[in-house]
């Protein structure tokens, strides 16, 4: 009977499709970085978060160490509260670490860059970063530039 051949062909097909799926999952999606979803959380407040989104990367020195877990608006202080999830193995951030919203390239995606401080104490789960720098908004910069030009004259 040729049912053996048929079963082998179906077997190959199924194996191929699983290989394709795992290749997609591991090679071109962020599944690997999901393993850190049990990381510890720290928050920071910004005046303006620009184009930052949930799941935007959090990086130190260009190396990705976590992601943005949630973005909320603080009704009392009129500020945006960004909660970041940092991978557990990077647990030695001094408590005076500063956070800034940076842009990858001129028009690229926005991410949070952390700059470690000098304190002896480290940030823990639920910790807060107090020194922050808001996103650069291109319109504001152009506006400032035009005003300063106008002032010069």
């Amino acid at each position: 009977m040729n049912s053996r051949k048929l079963e082998i062909a179906v077997g190959i097909f199924v194996a191929l499709s699983f290989a394709a799926f795992f290749m997609l999952a591991l090679k071109v999606s962020n599944l690997i970085t999901y393993e850190s979803s049990t990381g510890y959380k720290i928050s920071a407040t910004f005046d303006n978060i620009g184009g930052l989104r949930v799941r935007s990367p959090v990086a130190v020195g260009g190396v990705r160490i976590g992601k943005v877990a949630s973005i909320e608006y603080d009704n009392e202080n009129y500020e945006a509260v960004v909660t970041m999830e940092i991978e557990p193995k990077y647990n030695r951030f001094p408590s005076d670490t500063s956070a800034g919203i940076l842009t990858a390239g001129l028009l690229g995606e926005q991410y949070i860059g952390l700059t470690p401080g000098a304190e002896e104490k480290y940030l823990k789960d639920g910790g807060k970063i107090t020194v922050t720098q808001s996103a650069l908004v291109l319109e504001d910069i152009i506006g400032q530039f035009l005003y300063s030009k106008a002032d010069e004259k």
Binding site: A25, K27, V28, S29, N30, T33, Y34, R55, P57, E109
Partner: peptide
């Protein structure tokens, strides 16, 4: 090619939704 895709493509919203 590979790393920029990883940066932007989300496993759940993109791949799983497609599935």
């Amino acid at each position: 090619y590979w790393s920029l895709a990883q940066l932007k493509v989300d496993f759940y919203t993109d791949l799983m939704n497609g599935m």
